[in-house]
Nucleic acid binder design. Structure first.
Lengths: 224, 224
DNA sequence: GCCGGGCGTCAGGAACGCGTCAAGACCACC
DNA sequence: GGTGGTCTTGACGCGTTCCTGACGCCCGGC
């Protein structure tokens, strides 16, 4: 059925989770710390991740930040901290649910079912390929006609936001909000400037864009 | 940005939620009981639903059951009951998240953001198809006989409002209100101009509309 | 037969949004 | 203190979109 990656350093809890999850029909992969979690997530291709925030090497939010650029499946966060500020931070960092320890196993399984139910749209591609360029979301790198191209941080944030929804129109408000923050919703000229730069770097003919299209008054669209 | 339907019979809480949600940039629609919740969900087309389980007329799970067959957006359940058995029941009945009262408003907003983020339909999921054209509501894209057609923001707002209620009559007041705002309820000539433009772009014979029908004095109707 | 309301059509002018360019501000690093 | 790269900001020209009013048509009421 679905494969779940469980990240936790507590051996006892890991054992309990492994047993319960396997009994519920999941295929289970585990990782005891942040670095191996990121490695396992990349190699084992889980459908869903259960992530404890208290890890020995990395902070949980760092793992989340390393996961989210390319991992599209749901992430369910476990934490001993019940403070709502922590919850908000984790959810806004890309978590899909937040469960405080100690938790009820039946509830966790139900939340996992709900997350998987909604998240099984696609396996999630870490690479977006067109005839002219390739965007590797995991490695944060772009190749145009085979040669690597350097993007500034802002350019990258904008491009990845667009490329992550191929064919869909992405509103300018959404772009501005996710790249510059909620306070910049009106600065549409930023978009004009950086879209021009991206087109200059990626498009075969920047004056007549083939992949990064403008929908006047609404937003932009990446067409593969 | 997105539209949220809040279902709760507690007037105080409803007020607080309306204010907070509106401040967070949501368009808010409310319903005080189960039957009106189902009606509002069908007519107002919310992107997400916040549903209190304790309602005067119907049980919350019944509302959930009435919603789920056709409503694909996320549903966030509110409840005073913290028992994990109730949580499991609601989540397995189709809820995407479960928050117990009393709740922290910041956390609720964060969970709502996470739900909306995850719940946006894939392009091709939510499309309306006719023999001559297809409207992809998620990708904001229209194809006529297979070729893509560009719509202006106003044209798109009008069309999507019509197409969201197939076969049903949409009053001119409702159209004007949702596209131009509450102050333009009387400017019915706007509708005439833009309906003509839509017909010219979509209809096989704009002079004799087959899909976008006029109901004189009442409104317009999209017939698939 | 006349009249008026509602609708479709058309065509201007004003306003807006986009692409482009360039100069200044800011920052990290040398 | 200088230097290179990146981000912000403003100005300009151009095409598109929106609004507005005028006109003719159909149809039902008088």
């Amino acid at each position: 059925m679905s494969r779940v990656l469980v990240v936790d350093d507590d051996v006892q809890l890991l054992r309990a989770l492994r047993i319960s999850l396997r009994a519920a029909g999941y295929e289970v992969v585990t990782a005891p710390d942040g670095t191996s979690a990121l490695r396992e997530a990349a190699t084992a291709h889980p459908d869903v991740v259960v992530l404890d925030l208290g890890l020995p090497d990395l902070d949980g939010t760092e793992v989340l930040a390393g996961l989210r650029p390319w991992f599209t499946g749901p992430v369910l966060v476990l934490s001993a901290r019940a403070d709502s500020q922590d919850k908000v931070a984790a959810l806004d960092a890309g978590a899909d649910d937040y469960v405080t320890k100690p938790f009820d196993m039946a509830e966790l399984l139900a939340r996992l079912r709900a997350a998987v139910r909604r998240g099984t749209a696609e396996p999630g591609q870490a690479q977006v390929v067109t005839d002219h360029f390739t965007v590797d979301l995991a490695a944060k790198q772009v190749r145009v006609d085979g040669v690597q191209v350097r993007l500034t941080p802002t350019e990258w944030a904008l491009l990845s936001e667009l490329v992550r929804s191929p064919g869909r129109l992405v509103g300018q408000k959404q772009l501005l909000q996710s790249v510059w923050g909620p306070a910049y919703e009106r600065e549409t000229n930023y978009l004009r400037v950086y879209l021009a730069q991206l087109r200059r770097k990626l498009e075969p003919d920047p004056a007549h864009p083939r992949y990064l299209h403008t929908e006047p008054g609404m937003g932009y669209r990446f067409t593969p």
